[in-house]
Amino acid sequence: MTAIFRHELRTDFHTLTTYLFGACLLAFIGIWAMMYNIQASVSNFEYVLGDSCLAFVVIVPILTMRTLAEERRQKTDQLLYSLPITSFQVVLGKYLALLTVYAVPLCLIAVYPLIFAQYGEVYLPTSYGSLFAFFLLGAALLAVGMFLSSLTENQGFAAGIGIAVILLNYYSVSLSEYVSSTAFGSAAALYVLILLLGLLIKYVTRNEKLAWGVGLVLLALTVAAYFVDPGAFEGLLPRIMTQLSLFERFYVFVNGVFDWTAVVYYVTVIVFFLFLSVQSLEKRRYN
């Protein structure tokens, strides 16, 4: 695993996109910090992070698109398969390299609150709590991006899907509020989402039976739950989306609450998508 990690890190630092990622992150946070903390003299650094996280929509896919898709395109995945290392080690090594690349600009950013503290009252626990959550949010998105990169050999495709997925996640709560909040509206929206999930499973696993199976079971459960307790469906969709949204969990930290359940949620998402990436690599062995 260390071999993969070191190799990946060296490749990353030889790629323009890595510097682009760092530069964009620094620029975004720099601009917001200038506007809020310096020009408007607001002492809350966490607001800067709260607004900058929109940058992830673009910069995370840029960083992750290459990781696994490029291996597949230049057929070096065959080398990885034939080396005495497991797919898990490959995925973990690559992910840790991504985290390292991501941590470098964050280390620079971590100095900002200290600088601002020299010139006024900055409540550091909230600032650093938010920075920690900001790191976790990025880490979770990196895991998602890496999984998307494992699905294709086309970097552009990986990046495009990545942007779409993260953007959807970013706006999921506000979008879900447009859906009628009546019980029937929520149930109908869930029905559509289940269909989409089924399609996704079908595309990713190429297993039609599995897709139909999962889809139908979820549909049956939804219908059953609807008849048992229609009241629970009122306003259900925004609630589900708030629970699922990676960004919503982050805003809790920005508001000054160190939420351990969110930490657990982020770690779960990371583990889940790393697991999916491993499965995606293994699946190609069974094509």
Binding site: R6, H7, T11, Q74, T76, D77, Q78, S82, P84
Partner: peptide, 28 residues
Amino acid sequence: IGYLPEQPPLYLNESPLEYLRFVGQAKG
């Protein structure tokens, strides 16, 4: 086993030395 697939699995923007170092490390 040492394996050379039909299309040599090379990282094109590395030098042979860097490439071999990576493969050697991965082989322990």
